[in-house]
Write a protein that binds this DNA or RNA. Structure first.
Lengths: 138, 138
DNA sequence: GTGAATGCAAAACCTTTGCAACTGG
DNA sequence: CCAGTTGCAAAGGTTTTGCATTCAC
């Protein structure tokens, strides 16, 4: 990971925050969730440092910051092009992969000459697990 | 518009905020931009009311709340399915329409059985105008 | 050793809330 | 009339910032 930081210092805190994001990646943790877990492992770490490190890692392209509506940002170490699906019922977040050879911009009628540098796709709805649960109960 | 509010009261403030959002729609105004303009037209209006009304209108489906990263929400009266393009250079926001008969979810490999209720697509990059400017100067 | 990174607390920012006063139907 | 809406001010949650201290290189 050191080399991925592009010359910046490798501190205990940076390694720790990165490890925690990886460990918690299935839940797409927020900064404060990362902080809780990091603090358990390193009681002296501060919330500001967690924010700083998350920003550093995001800028280095090692993790991705995921925003949905105005909720707290979540962080994920999945670097493949992917979208996020938020289940309104169980509040969990899933990665949604781009299909093979698909172009995320294809359905959109972009003005000629625009240069897309980043694309952010988030969906809200009900996940398969919750729908099954609903069918069983309802 | 009264009927679109579904039985709720039509107040001066609601009409005003809606008119301002429509007036400023090319710029995709934030709540505080709407507030500034609304306050100019009705000095007694409060920021909380602007927020309340924007929420009411959003819930009524008359306007859409647009979120990009952690920036302040923007509001737009365009009800067609569309995405947003944010130019990193001139900071403006453009609507991007869905192509005829296109499906925004098509490029994405959604797990079987998910039910999408809402989809949010935002792009960042350089708009055609800025690219032209850059080519001329650079 | 020295500049970069940390920890702390305070501030910034956008947004929501509680409540008394007002008003639209 | 009176429930729904407003205006105000205060609080909320997330994120950023300033600065003295510590640490990686």
């Amino acid at each position: 990971m050191a080399e991925m930081l592009g010359g910046q210092r490798m501190t205990k805190q940076r390694r720790l925050v990165f490890d925690v994001v990886k460990e918690l990646s299935p839940t797409h943790p927020t900064a404060s969730t990362v902080y809780e877990r990091a603090k358990y492992l390193m009681p002296s770490i501060s919330l500001a440092t967690v924010y700083n490190v998350l920003e550093t890692l995001t800028e280095a392209g090692i993790i991705t910051q995921v925003n949905i509506d105005r909720e707290a940002s979540r962080f994920c170490p999945n670097l493949h092009p992917h979208a996020h699906f938020f289940c309104d019922q169980c509040d969990s977040v899933f990665d949604v992969d781009l299909r093979e050879r698909a172009d995320a911009a294809e359905p959109w009628n972009l003005p000629n000459g625009s240069l897309i540098e980043q694309m952010n796709v988030a969906m809200r709805g009900i996940c398969p697990e919750c729908r099954e649960k609903n069918d069983a109960t309802g």
